[in-house]
Design a protein around this nucleic acid. Sequence first.
DNA 1: GTATAATTATGTTTTACAACACAAAGTTAT
DNA 2: ATAACTTTGTGTTGTAAAACATAATTATAC
Lengths: 232, 232
Amino acid sequence: MIKSVIERVISDDMAGIWKILDSDEKRRIVDAFTLQNFKKNQIIYAEKEAPEHLWCLLKGKVKLYKDGLGGRPQILRLIRPVQYFGYRAYFADEPYVSSAAAFEPSTLGCLPMSLVSEMITNNNQLAWFFIHELSRNLGSSDTKIINLTQKHIRGRLAEALILLRDNYGYEDDNSTLNIFMAREDLANLSNMTTSNAIRTLSGFVTEKIITVDGRRIKILNEPMLRKISKFG
Amino acid sequence: MIKSVIERVISDDMAGIWKILDSDEKRRIVDAFTLQNFKKNQIIYAEKEAPEHLWCLLKGKVKLYKDGLGGRPQILRLIRPVQYFGYRAYFADEPYVSSAAAFEPSTLGCLPMSLVSEMITNNNQLAWFFIHELSRNLGSSDTKIINLTQKHIRGRLAEALILLRDNYGYEDDNSTLNIFMAREDLANLSNMTTSNAIRTLSGFVTEKIITVDGRRIKILNEPMLRKISKFG
DNA sequence: GTATAATTATGTTTTACAACACAAAGTTAT
DNA sequence: ATAACTTTGTGTTGTAAAACATAATTATAC
């Protein structure tokens, strides 16, 4: 791989972490960094594997999910560029408890966790970066527990649509979700069966809260969706 | 408060963190540290408040919980001596998303987060301590999502009993759970109604998996309980 | 371009669990 | 001790959502 490409990626796309490193650290990052492409639905890592790398999504979309009983997966977190993942299990000194897969063709950067670990020890700002990330994720995870266990189907689906909106935003028309996912993924995000995701989505269409064209979802009434998410 | 008592508490009970601090840091901790007692069911902090303190449970039992729709609380985490809590929201720069309350009369230590924050910046081992804690908690939280959403009532209650066993252990008889909680709390731990917690508990008694004497729960067949937890 | 598979859609049946109602036992206050 | 309240226990009813079934439509492979 061409070193200058990597240098550009790191100093440009990964600026957030990059800027807190000193020049020696930067050189070591450049040397250890690898770029990898993943196809649609390709698995990046799987539950129970030993965590060895810090992943950084540069282009595309990635889901973190966990397989439950009877192979019913639950999508735990959605990753967008430029976000980091794959580090939690290493820090906890555990095997992965969840898996990661690309939603669509994606480009990822990859660093050995041993190097990241070493840098955390030498660079306090980097330690703070991970403390912040972990703390935010833990808050979201705790909140998700309530959403998934206590809300009814409509509320859970509305919540999922809001999550997609907040995570990936709208297209240029300011209303079409900038991610096209299968009904099955939508179901796995909202803890329901695929049938019920389809049915409930149709309901929202009938109520003119959204329109649907295949996997393109257009949100017509976002306040109503937030309301259903909150009370449903 | 008598300074020597605090010094003993910190150097003895809180040895895990204490040992990684230098003498100047230790002195500052002793000066800022306060001891507080909480009565049974007393709230330590509540959702939406601004986080200001690191709490350390020295004696007693504490629950972290989150109120859901219609006032149905979900217990998110159980704290035992000596564990730390209350720091996540501060690190995430958010108000609390959950509340903390004492299960039983408890003694807690309390430090301003601003001081903790400063020490993390100056002491990398302390940064690592929190990275580890947060990472483990995030793993548990993600796993809990699957347990609460995909398991049936029996599996969820079995899981809760196992959690109590792993967290607080057995009494001297090696089978009685070392925590006596109301059926309602048991229900709030396992995402079910109080009636169903009572009913399902009775079921376990009939099947000779446990015995019940008021709030004393004796586990007769732990392997079976783990089995129900895993597949139920 | 046709076959095969996957996804989307909708109707029907079944069931796990909440909601409710009430009684008994236990706890706390006066 | 007695009352007032809380917790525990059990039966009944209602319902949300899963499970199942079966088309229709859309992708994908050959």
